[in-house]
């Protein structure tokens, strides 16, 4: 783990029970971490919330989204945050797990979404190979022939 993620976890861990997803949305969820939801839902409460507002999975725990919804109207929260509450959040980018969301915010890495999420195709972005899709790994006899991205994506550490 590098320096920044350690500082981030040390700060946000005790306060927000931060799970280091690397793409923080605390500002649009009334400062309640959605990754503490047992279903890690990013877009509001599921249909299983109990009558007392507690979690379907952990009856002793208040639903994080019910709490977040209440807090989003709190007088001390900026109004602009309330407006963001009902925005559709993109699927979690699992490549960012463990990295610093602060760094990802500054570098805009946390705003890199799959082309399909923003209504585009790979071809629009010039990323789609012109020929047939590449062969499956089982058919590759020389791994040096794989594109550079493959090695980056699969590197460990």
């Amino acid at each position: 783990m590098k320096f920044l993620p350690i500082v981030e976890l040390a700060t946000k861990g005790p306060v927000f029970d931060c799970r280091m997803c690397g793409q923080c949305v605390l500002h649009s969820t009334g400062m309640t971490c959605p990754m503490t939801c047992p279903k890690t839902l990013r877009n509001g409460p599921c249909g299983g919330v109990r009558d007392d507002g507690h979690c379907e999975v952990k009856p002793e725990m208040p639903c994080v989204w019910t709490a977040a919804e209440g807090r989003s109207h709190h007088a001390l929260m900026p109004n602009s945050w309330e407006d963001h509450f009902s925005e559709l959040h993109p699927p979690v980018d699992n490549q960012l797990r463990g990295s610093s969301s602060w760094l990802n915010l500054i570098t805009k890495r946390d705003k890199q979404f799959p082309a399909g999420w923003v209504g585009r195709t790979m071809a629009d972005d010039g990323a789609e190979p012109a020929d047939e899709p590449r062969s499956a790994l089982g058919e590759v006899d020389d791994i040096s022939g794989l594109d550079q991205g493959f090695h980056e994506r699969t590197s460990i550490g």
């Binding site: 799959p114 082309a115 399909g116 209504g119 585009r120 195709t121 790979m122 789609e128 899709p133």
Partner: peptide, 10 residues
């Protein structure tokens, strides 16, 4: 339904 996977592949 619009002809693309989430990745953007057609």
């Amino acid at each position: 339904a619009e002809g693309r996977y989430l990745s953007g592949r057609k």
